[in-house]
Simulated scan of single mutants.
Amino acid sequence: MSFTCFKFRVLSAFAAVAVVGSLHAAPLKIGVTPGSLADSVNVAAAQAKKAGLDVQVIEFTDWTTPNTALESGDLDLNYFQHQAFLDNAVTERGYKIESVAYGLLPNIGLYSKKYDALTAIPNGSKVGVANDPVNQARGLLLLQAADLIQLKDGVGAKASVNDVVRNPKKLQLVEVEGPQLVRAVDDLALAQGYPAHFVNAGQPELASKALQYSTIDDLYYAIRFVARSDNKNDSRIRQFVDIYQSSPAVAAQIDKSFAGDKKLYSLPWTNPKNASITNALRGGHTSR
């Protein structure tokens, strides 16, 4: 599969250079999605160049192609999905790809430009949730936590709009493609949203004004660096992840992407308890 069939934008391309005494014939290619992920990876890529690692950052505008490109070998790594999304993709499509390290853990929220409180949302209002099964479940669970709906017992991370068993306000759940939720807030009474998307869309003030937030300590929803199973021990991947996780400049860019509001995100790799998945790069096992 060739990149010519994708819609993408090459954000960073650095000339190949010697890496600790060896020369890589091709750059490490990493696929990302716009916003906090692309921005932070570009900072790491610039620092990788100084360390002698050639990195090419490729931006995708959807949540399907980065895994297809990784599986086909057109990418060495991608950085856009949490473990719940990855598990679903592997189950549905049989990809031989897996998590190799933690990235940032973004919060999500329920946003409105029309109402200042969840109690003010009128009966029959339209409420936006992500249309992909995994992120939709996360949005529905947040709506349930806000006491706006009730889901079937036990559905958890597999919840869909068909699992709503109680809806006292008779809310109309509108399914929206995840990256477009930031725009949907303009037309809906309430919508599931991602703080960094609002910052990236030039609305940083809205990022910190969700009517309800999810927790920021659920590691199942931390963004992951994902590689092919047969290439997960590539030393270039280990080097790049180490640069990303240890760089103060990367941490500063992530903070900027979240409008300097630390309640909107966390950095799981800074917690020693979460070291096991990063250690997988050194020959250990991956985990959720």
Results as ranks from 00 to 15, higher is better:
Asp187Cys: 03
Tyr221Asn: 15
Tyr79Trp: 04
Asn107Ile: 10
Leu110Tyr: 01
Pro122Thr: 10
Gln144Thr: 08
Phe225His: 08
Ser112Gln: 06
Ser125Leu: 05
Asp39Met: 03
Ala89Phe: 01
Val90Lys: 08
Asp153Thr: 12
Lys50Tyr: 04
Leu211Arg: 12
Pro272Val: 03
His82Tyr: 04
Asp147Cys: 08
Gln136Trp: 00
Gly156Glu: 06
Glu59Trp: 03
Leu219Pro: 03
Gln245Glu: 06
Ala222Ser: 14
Ile223Val: 10
Ser72Glu: 07
Lys49Leu: 14
Asp116Pro: 04
Ala259Met: 09
Gln47Ser: 10
Ile243Glu: 08
Asp76Trp: 00
Val129Asn: 02
Ala251Ile: 09
Ser229Ile: 13
Asp116Gln: 06
Ala251Trp: 02
Lys114Val: 10
Gly260Arg: 06
Val164Lys: 01
Ile237Ser: 04
Gln192Glu: 15
Ala69Gln: 05
Leu264Ile: 08
Lys263Gln: 14
Ser229Trp: 06
Leu142Asp: 13
Ala16Lys: 15
Ile121Val: 13
Ala159Met: 03
Lys170Asn: 15
Tyr221Leu: 12
Arg238Lys: 14
Lys262His: 14
Ala189His: 02
Asp54Thr: 13
Ala51Tyr: 02
Ile223Leu: 05
Thr286Asn: 09
Val199Ala: 04
Ala137Tyr: 01
Gly139Leu: 00
Pro34Ala: 06
